[in-house]
Design a protein around this nucleic acid. Structure first.
Lengths: 205, 205
DNA sequence: GTAGAACTTGACTGGCCGGTCAAGAGTAGA
DNA sequence: TCTACTCTTGACCGGCCAGTCAAGTTCTAC
């Protein structure tokens, strides 16, 4: 009879209807968090926006913080999945790197709201811990291809982690500028960014 | 008898003692905001930390938001002053650009707390407006040197604003990674960044 | 020394906020 | 129809927070 036994880390099993509600809450909250900020957006505001009672929120999420982490985790998952799909089974690690960069750039440009939430999350230690973990995963994903290319003699030896950091830095910066400034971003900018990353890693073409 | 007439935009005249208090409040708040986040840090926490009554805060600042804007404005001012001092009267615009980049990079690395506050400020529209203004100023500062170099035929024609944006992007990203990750940052990294920016603007050396 | 400005105090207020909960509605299988 | 589960409601709670204010103290200029 009581609401949400809050069963530790275990995910609740949801009916299709429940899944929809959850998605609606996430979608609405994401927009509001990105526009107004995390703290200024109250839980009441979110449930009012979706048109449900307050208890619903706590049926689907353990807390407001949890919701943000959920959004962030989903985002990381989605980005990595996009990268994996883009790469598929490219046996050439340089090509894989390029496709990874490309899909990452595209993903950032298509999710400016998430970029803003990520920016926020880095500014508070409680969330920053999770961000560090996520960044480590991204770095390793990227470094893997670079290491592979080194092993295959396609590029000269070097610190793959540092290179990966630089590559991530470029796409971060691009996504951030897009999310901040509002609108444009020519596709040629993406081409320049891809070129720059590859040139930086391979040495020069 | 009443506290703080809150005289619109006019700055209150402060005695040296008053100036010290104000500085202490700013310093303490900056650290807390950067460590714990802006919203989670209460005004009471700040005044307790400095060891004064709550009214003191509202004698020196119109609101908590005002304080953050003040910190941000001071930071922009300090950064620009550092750049101007570094450049002094370099008649060579390319050299001026390099010195500007260098001092900007150095400033960012020496003020990781401010970098965190800037990151936060971009995530809430009420502050983001001011950030956009600040960024515009920085862009124009940088573009001015590039335009000058173009006029003097030192580099080929191009979109100076876009180049300036790229240059700022590089130092932003570097400052951010340093503020986020914690400690190191070899001076050679700064050299690489400077080289990259100049290479990007001049074409190649 | 005195007037007036700069500064300080800390109790207080009104409001909102995250989170709870008892009660009940909808739903699906048996 | 009954049962057991998922889902929903909205009043309510304790707590905290930004900001106020009447009263007082300290400084400065004359």
């Amino acid at each position: 009879m009581t609401t949400a036994p809050a069963d530790e880390s275990v995910k609740r099993t949801l009916t299709p209807r429940g899944q929809d509600r959850r998605d609606a809450l996430i979608a609405f909250a994401t927009t509001r968090f990105a526009q107004n900020g995390f703290h200024p957006t109250s839980v009441s505001e979110i449930v009012d926006g979706v048109g449900v009672g307050k208890g619903v929120f706590y049926w689907y999420f353990r807390s407001k913080d949890e919701l943000l982490l959920e959004i962030l985790r989903d985002a990381l998952f989605g980005l990595r999945r996009a990268q994996k799909e883009a790469i598929r089974e490219s046996s050439d690690p340089i090509k894989a790197l390029e496709l990874g960069i490309r899909s990452s750039l595209l993903w950032s440009v298509n999710h400016p709201e998430i970029i803003r939430l990520v920016m926020f999350a880095w500014t508070e230690e409680s969330f920053a811990q999770d961000m560090r973990k996520g960044r480590e995963i991204m770095t390793q994903d990227t470094a893997r291809h670079i290491k592979q290319a080194m092993k295959m003699g396609l590029i000269e030896q070097g610190d793959a982690r540092i290179m990966a950091t630089a590559v991530l830095g470029v796409s971060d910066e691009l996504g951030r500028q897009h999310a901040i400034s509002g609108e444009p971003l020519d596709s040629s900018v993406i081409e320049v960014a891809v070129r720059f990353c590859l040139r930086g890693v391979t040495g020069e073409p």
